[in-house]
Design a protein around this nucleic acid. Sequence first.
DNA 1: CAGCATCCATGGAGATACTG
DNA 2: CAGTATCTCCATGGATGCTG
Lengths: 107, 107
Amino acid sequence: MENTNICPVDYVVDLISGKWKVLIIWHLKFSKKRFGQLQRNLDGVSKKVLSQHLRELEKSGLIKRDVIPSLPVQVEYSLTERGMELSTILEEINRFGSVLLKGPTIS
Amino acid sequence: MENTNICPVDYVVDLISGKWKVLIIWHLKFSKKRFGQLQRNLDGVSKKVLSQHLRELEKSGLIKRDVIPSLPVQVEYSLTERGMELSTILEEINRFGSVLLKGPTIS
DNA sequence: CAGCATCCATGGAGATACTG
DNA sequence: CAGTATCTCCATGGATGCTG
């Protein structure tokens, strides 16, 4: 997770290398979610890790964080345009990975 | 690097999450290379890590390993068809990442 | 040359408790 | 509810030496 990368590929890979990053993006792709919802959806994440990941994704402009000044506070997360773009790449990766997983290593 | 993933995306991400994986694929994309060449190209990799990565990439069918029975032994690594496919995805990621890195977080 | 065995360092992830 | 603060643990990467 080193930001000192000059390589854009490594940069993006780092972005989605976090243990839950892909899942977070996946879930937000379909609808915005609140913190607690996400935590329940990603079965097993600790709050610490979840908020770390969310902050990183936000910092790189992939997700948006909206604070709703209710009581108690609610926070909604959603994908940005860029996050949407990334999710289409993830779909490609998904297709590719599916083939890899099914087809035995023919090399 | 858990193989127990059901998610194809995570599977692929794990595949290219190793610190040098992307670079290895990148270098092999243009020409096959010997172990020592790779080690020199990826400035700073230890032999241990390099061979670990190579074995993993081979195991998942992304690269091919050819042993040339000379003295001393030479080993050539090259991309498989699947590795080539992946490298096109990496190029997309590259484009996307470049935008991310240049443009400030407009969200 | 290619690569394995060993030991060590580091940081990312988990568990838990506390707060505005 | 949505986090932050600590502490611990383990996997990954690094350094070095040995071998067919």
